[in-house]
Design a protein around this nucleic acid. Structure first.
Lengths: 342, 342
DNA sequence: CTGAAAGCGCTTACAG
DNA sequence: CTGAAAGCGCTTACAG
């Protein structure tokens, strides 16, 4: 069943069927009904490839691409989820891709991104996570459609170039996160991060921790930075080993909520009381933290406001009613049992 | 930049460029290198819409669709993740869709599925979760490409029809799950499910629980079925209220791992000891359970074997070297602190 | 081994 | 308001 079959059966031309499909107004109600009836009867739906092939330069496209680096970051999956509904309701198709198989080389990765956008005739692109700090300015100019980088580390000096961004204030919020522990009187604080060589927003968070330590004159805590590798098992093993070796530590700062269960368990297995003998504070704001024992304080990313911003901005960019811009959201501390927050 | 531009610059015809792009063997090495050089220089990549438009009936397509019902089921996200890498490495593009905005009416949902497969010129489709038990046999015949339903409730009577499936033995495994608690001597057991009207595989699990209760002469536990609605908050509130009202209950059976933190916290907030005063057993096998306090016993879905099976079967179906089939995997109990498993 | 040409499903200026 | 026709980017039988 293609558009010519439908046209033949409905006794019209393919062009007329196309206009019905695309809600053109210059179609008589009688013809519209006749065509719709045939479409309904044969369960016809036009192919995406036909629709996406540009027949004239004015052709509008309806595909939004969404790429996630680090799908195990639940925050990003939740943003994807909320965003996909909103764009769908606005008549767009959202193509989701997870980053598993992209290149590790940043430049190659960016080229793959450009390829992806061209391949799928995207009219807009949302990229979640990652790092494109080292990408030369000219390459951003090659982006073939409006693009919003979300929680991506970008070359700030290029802000005037051809892209938008929606970010949280990772650096400042992690300073505040660490600052909370310092204000609580802790002198020996361990920091659980993904990896020393992580240059995504987790790298920014690490930088924030270091700044906070410097400012408070607690530089020796640099030796208490522990790598968790984004996995439950490494997080558990490494933080446990470190806390065992350094019984003077009285607080742990997690750079992502996903690490929290491992930290609680490690403290417990060392026969200490999480949240009492060792305070815990985290980052992201996943709902799970409200059910841990103890419930865990965390800096929360305002997901739903971020999606609002992504949606409005991308639609505006595609309609050319808005220009590229860079939005930063504040993370807010949800105070819970694991850490006194006065 | 399109295929004609590349052809012009390389001094060949578009057909020749196309053959280079598609690794045809009847191209001289010199021409291949010349064309590849131009492609590289201009960073050209062919559009998906052009490629997917069938020019002749023999046209091979390279799109695999993957739909997830219930993205908050981490098992399904993990399956998606592993599968996307494997299909990518085999040269396929995987289009992921999450089910947020599909219809709730099963028949409409199935029609949307057909539409999706046609729209995107899919050569294969993987569907994770959901329920299509009430879909008439004829509709399955309309599937335009090889399709594998994974953890989907299907009309067993139609097994000879036009689709494949990869399932876990949800019904039997949940009987065994409940059976473990019964063998441990529990007489009053609460069951935390998603919802009474859930007819996905969670419905099968509920059926398994009921069977186990009947077989053991413990029918009165039917009054201890609690709905958690897939959310942390409802799971917590409802199981806590129920356990408070029924202090005789000594074990809780969870139909999904995602419910476990809520259950542990609820027991704790009732001043009882999880895993001791009240045993816990769960279903799915998420890694998180190894770090809960107590660690939680769970029936594990063999995700990686399931992906192997999905991959081999779908490729076989697309190459027409295999016929539709229905594979069932056993879930295995990982025994941990929350429940003695002798 | 390469070119010339027809073809895919769809869209959109243009004519009447 | 509808039709006839040209167009998109790509692929693939077919000719030589």
């Amino acid at each position: 069943m293609n558009i010519r079959d439908i046209a033949r059966i409905a006794n019209v031309t393919p062009g007329t069927v196309s206009k019905v499909l695309n809600n053109y107004s210059d179609i008589s109600e009688a013809t519209r009904q006749k065509v719709l009836a045939v479409i309904e009867e044969y369960q016809y739906s036009p192919t995406a490839s036909g629709r996406n092939t540009p027949s004239y330069s004015t052709n509008k496209k309806l595909n939004i691409g969404l790429i996630i680096e680090g799908v195990y970051n639940n925050t990003h999956v939740e943003i994807e989820d909320i965003a996909s509904i909103r764009f769908h309701n606005a008549g767009y198709t959202m193509l989701s891709f997870h980053d598993n198989y992209y290149s590790q080389d940043k430049k190659e990765k960016f080229e793959e991104l450009l390829e992806y956008a061209n391949e799928h005739s995207l009219s807009g692109l949302v990229y979640l996570g990652g790092n494109f700090e080292s990408i030369p300015k000219e390459m951003f100019q090659k982006l073939p459609c409006p693009t919003i980088f979300v929680n991506t580390v970008l070359p700030i000096a290029y802000y005037e170039t051809n892209y938008s961004s929606v970010q949280c204030n990772h650096l400042e919020a992690s300073e505040m996160q660490m600052g909370q522990l310092i204000r609580n009187g802790h002198k020996d604080i361990s920091i659980l991060i993904s990896s020393m060589v992580d240059n995504s927003v987790y790298g920014l968070r690490l930088k924030g921790y270091k700044c906070a330590l410097m400012n408070a004159g607690l530089e020796h805590n640099i030796n208490h930075i522990v790598e968790g590798d984004y996995t439950y098992s490494k997080s558990y093993q490494n933080i446990k080993a470190h806390l065992e070796k350094h019984p003077e530590i009285t607080a742990v700062c997690c750079s992502a909520d996903i690490m929290v269960p491992s930290v609680i368990r490690a403290i417990y297995d060392l026969s200490k009381i999480p949240g009492k003998d060792i305070e815990i504070i985290s980052f992201d704001g996943l709902e799970m933290l409200e059910y841990c024992i103890p419930t865990v304080s965390s800096f929360k990313q305002p997901k739903s406001e971020m999606v609002d911003s992504i949606y409005d901005l991308l639609l505006g960019l595609m309609n050319k009613t808005r220009n590229n811009q860079h939005v930063t959201f504040q993370c807010n501390l949800a105070s819970r049992e694991s850490c006194k927050c006065l």
